[in-house]
Amino acid sequence: MILAILQARMSSQRLPKKVLKQILGEPMLAHQIRRIRASKKIDKLVIATSDQIDDSALVAFAQEYQVEVFQGSLNDVLARFYHCASHYKATHIVRLTGDCPLSDAKIIDNTIALHINQKADYSSNCHPATFADGFDVEVITFDALQQAYYQAQEQKMREHVTLYLAKSPDAFVQANLTTSPDTSHFRVTVDNQDDFELVSQIYQSMSEQGKDFTYQEIIDWLNAHPKQSGINAHYQRNEAISVCHK
């Protein structure tokens, strides 16, 4: 079973409670879930949040939007993912993060297809990154996730689910999805207020097309609106760890 685990929490330091901030009258996370549900390869979608009281709002959100929710450790996110995957008996895990409200189902499906076709242990579209920041996808076999769970010791490798895998290229078969031309200079992840303003503008501008606007349509909009797309250009991807390890 291919299980998509959407990692989310309310205690974001730079923009607290961002995942439930409203865009066009709905929580940001609801827009992302709607886009993820267009995937043809994901069998089940689960929100994985912490067992802290702050995240009870996400449990209520999940009930309202009919998404299953799994609660686990706040800081040992690797353990949260492992126990979630074990609970649902997943064979492959798709890791997504709740700060990417423009997630594209086609990119998700293409990453899954690459992972399956190449019989990889760990696949992503981040090493190197050629997609805009905010479209990150990672796919892991359950066996690889289990190995990381038991062997990763450093705190940063417990906090960042796939860091152990990404840093062990000789131990795991890895694959990477790329796109051309390179559009990685664009940023539509939501980590701060400027990011949120940009994503809100994209939704407001493109809402007349419906909710299925594509990655390329978003890139075309960003190219056509340099003033708007530049409001968060001074923020850099988190290269200190990896663009996929937010």
Score class of each variant (00 low, 15 high):
235 Y>M: 10
204 Q>V: 14
192 N>A: 13
120 A>W: 04
183 T>Y: 02
61 F>S: 03
166 A>K: 09
160 H>S: 12
177 L>Q: 05
188 V>L: 01
97 T>V: 12
207 S>N: 06
48 A>N: 02
211 K>A: 15
192 N>L: 05
45 L>E: 08
6 L>Y: 05
60 A>Q: 09
157 M>I: 01
219 I>T: 05
168 S>H: 12
23 I>R: 06
184 S>G: 00
96 L>Y: 12
27 P>K: 00
33 I>T: 00
111 T>A: 01
101 P>T: 08
67 V>D: 10
80 R>S: 09
34 R>N: 08
57 A>R: 07
77 V>L: 11
31 H>P: 06
145 L>Y: 14
243 V>L: 04
100 C>P: 02
86 S>K: 10
147 Q>D: 14
219 I>A: 02
5 I>L: 14
106 K>T: 06
56 S>D: 14
225 H>G: 09
78 L>T: 14
132 A>N: 08
28 M>C: 07
32 Q>H: 00
246 K>H: 08
24 L>E: 06
13 Q>Y: 00
103 S>E: 12
230 G>Q: 10
169 P>C: 13
54 D>W: 00
179 T>I: 12
126 C>Y: 01
226 P>K: 11
122 Y>A: 13
145 L>V: 14
34 R>M: 12
43 D>R: 04
176 N>D: 01
61 F>C: 04
49 T>K: 02
142 F>L: 14
229 S>G: 10
166 A>H: 15
67 V>F: 13
177 L>E: 07
214 T>N: 10
65 Y>K: 08
42 I>L: 02
234 H>Q: 13
212 D>R: 07
241 I>L: 10
76 D>K: 11
230 G>I: 02
144 A>W: 11
15 L>S: 13
198 L>W: 13
196 F>D: 15
20 L>M: 01
142 F>I: 09
61 F>K: 04
139 V>P: 05
83 H>S: 09
89 K>G: 03
25 G>V: 14
210 G>R: 15
83 H>V: 04
182 D>W: 05
199 V>A: 03
128 P>V: 05
205 S>E: 13
117 N>C: 08
180 S>A: 15
29 L>H: 01
202 I>C: 09
37 R>A: 03
58 L>R: 03
41 K>I: 00
118 Q>H: 11
13 Q>T: 07
205 S>Y: 14
10 M>F: 08
241 I>G: 04
147 Q>W: 13
11 S>I: 05
55 D>A: 03
95 R>F: 05
92 H>T: 01
235 Y>V: 14
212 D>F: 11
84 C>N: 08
80 R>A: 07
